[in-house]
């Protein structure tokens, strides 16, 4: 350990503000990139579900129409 105590490690011989600012902002920027990637995946999953539901609705509607047509044909 290059420092005698945690206070000194944070103080960094007077340069603490600059060191911690650059480390903090850098890690924050990378964290934002990671989170953005995760959110994109979530959004894609939501889109996939939506698309599937749309397909199901379409299929159900077609089935109903076919059934109605059959009924009309029977009448």
């Amino acid at each position: 350990m290059a420092f005698d105590s945690w206070q000194e490690a944070i103080w960094m011989g007077g340069y603490g503000f600059y060191v911690w600012l650059s480390f903090g902002v850098s890690l924050l920027a990378i964290a934002i990139l990671v989170v953005h990637g995760l959110l994109t995946r979530k959004k894609l999953a939501a889109m996939a579900v939506q698309e599937q539901q749309r397909k199901q609705r379409l299929a159900r509607r077609q089935q109903q129409e076919r059934a109605q047509r059959k009924e009309k044909g029977a009448q």
């Binding site: 290059a2 960094m12 011989g13 340069y15 600059y18 060191v19 650059s22 480390f23």
Partner: peptide, 25 residues
């Protein structure tokens, strides 16, 4: 790497502790 650089590497004789930014820059 960053933990070692921040807390265990010796300070620079010219720039003191400010040089620790090098480990990310």
């Amino acid at each position: 790497g960053l933990g070692w650089g921040l807390f265990y590497a010796p300070p620079d004789y010219q720039q003191g502790d400010s040089y620790r930014i090098i480990f990310i820059h």
